[in-house]
C-alpha cells in the first residue's frame, strides 16, 4: 500500500479552502458550515493531525456551551459573547482548512505545489516565509513580553514606553531572522536562475478526488438548497 494514500496534494487543500469560502458566502445556512467543518476535521484526522482536531472540538464545545449559558446572563454580557462567538463561527470553517493546509504540508511540498501552479517566485517566497515565520514570531513575542514583565517594565507607567520595550527587541529579532533566512535560502539555491527540481512531486491521489467531490457537493447544496437558520 502507498504510505501516502491519506496525504492530500497541497493543491487540493488550497482548492478546499477556496471551496469553503464559496460555501460560507453562498449563505446556505449554518448547517452547511458545520458539514464543512466536519469534512475538514475528517481529512485532518486522516492525515494524522490529531491534536489540531482535539483543539477544534474543544473550541466548538466552549462556543456551544457558552451560547447555551449566555441566555441566563445580563444583556451586555450576552451581547459581547454573541459578538465574540459570531466572529468565531464565521472564521472557524476557513480556519479549519487553513489548519489542514499548514499542519499537514511541509514547506518543500508547498513550494513544489505553488511552482506547479505557476505562481511567480515573487509571490512564492514571501508566502512560504510567512508561514514558516508566524510560529517563530509568536514565540518571540511571548518570550519578550515575559522577559519585560519579569523586569517590571510592563503593566505600569507610560504605555508608549511599554510599546517601545516590546517593539524594539521584537523588530530587531525580525530583522536578524530575515538575514539568517536569506543566507539559508541562498545556500539552498533559491537565488539561481535555473528552475529548481523537487524530490517529491505533488501528485493527485484517490483521496484528493474524494475530498474535492465532497466539497463540490457541499457548494452545490449550499447554493441550491439554503436552510433557514
Amino acid at each position: 500500500m502507498d504510505p501516502n494514500r491519506f496525504r492530500l496534494d497541497p493543491r487540493t487543500k488550497l482548492l478546499l479552502l477556496v471551496g469553503m469560502n464559496v460555501v460560507i458566502y453562498s449563505f446556505g445556512g449554518a448547517r452547511y458550515l458545520y458539514l464543512g467543518v466536519a469534512l475538514g476535521a475528517a481529512l485532518m484526522l486522516a492525515a494524522g493531525a490529531v491534536r489540531a482536531v482535539a483543539l477544534l472540538v474543544a473550541t466548538y464545545a466552549v462556543l456551544v456551551a457558552g451560547d447555551a449559558l449566555v441566555t441566563f446572563a445580563p444583556d451586555p454580557v450576552a451581547e459581547a459573547w454573541n459578538a465574540l462567538s459570531l466572529s468565531f463561527f464565521v472564521f472557524l470553517p476557513t480556519a479549519v482548512y487553513a489548519m489542514l493546509l499548514v499542519t499537514t504540508t511541509t514547506i518543500t511540498e508547498a513550494a513544489a505545489a505553488l511552482e506547479k501552479l505557476r505562481v511567480p517566485t515573487l509571490a512564492i517566497v514571501p508566502v512560504l516565509v510567512l508561514f514558516r515565520f508566524v510560529p517563530a514570531l509568536i514565540q518571540d513575542f511571548r518570550a519578550i513580553t515575559s522577559a519585560m514583565r519579569l523586569r517590571g517594565l510592563i503593566g505600569r507607567g507610560n504605555p508608549f514606553r511599554m510599546i517601545e520595550f516590546v517593539y524594539v527587541p521584537l523588530l530587531l529579532g525580525v530583522v536578524r531572522t530575515g538575514d539568517q533566512l536569506t543566507v539559508a535560502a541562498l545556500t539552498r539555491g533559491l537565488g539561481l536562475h535555473r528552475n529548481r527540481t523537487f524530490v517529491t512531486e505533488p501528485r493527485f491521489r484517490g483521496i484528493d478526488v474524494v475530498a474535492i467531490a465532497a466539497m463540490a457537493a457541499l457548494v452545490v447544496a449550499a447554493r441550491l438548497a439554503p436552510v433557514d437558520a
Binding site: 466572529s87 515573487l122 517566497v125 514571501p126 516565509v129 510567512l130 508566524v134 530575515g178 533559491l190 536562475h193
Partner: peptide, 30 residues
Amino acid sequence: MAGMGLSVRDLITIGIFSAVYLLAYVILST
C-alpha cells in the same frame, strides 16, 4: 535576480513583514 528588481533577500523581508502585519491585525480583530 528574482525579478522586478527585487532580490531574494527583499522577498524574504517582504514575507517576514507580511507575517508581522497579518498577525498584528488578526490579534487586533480578535
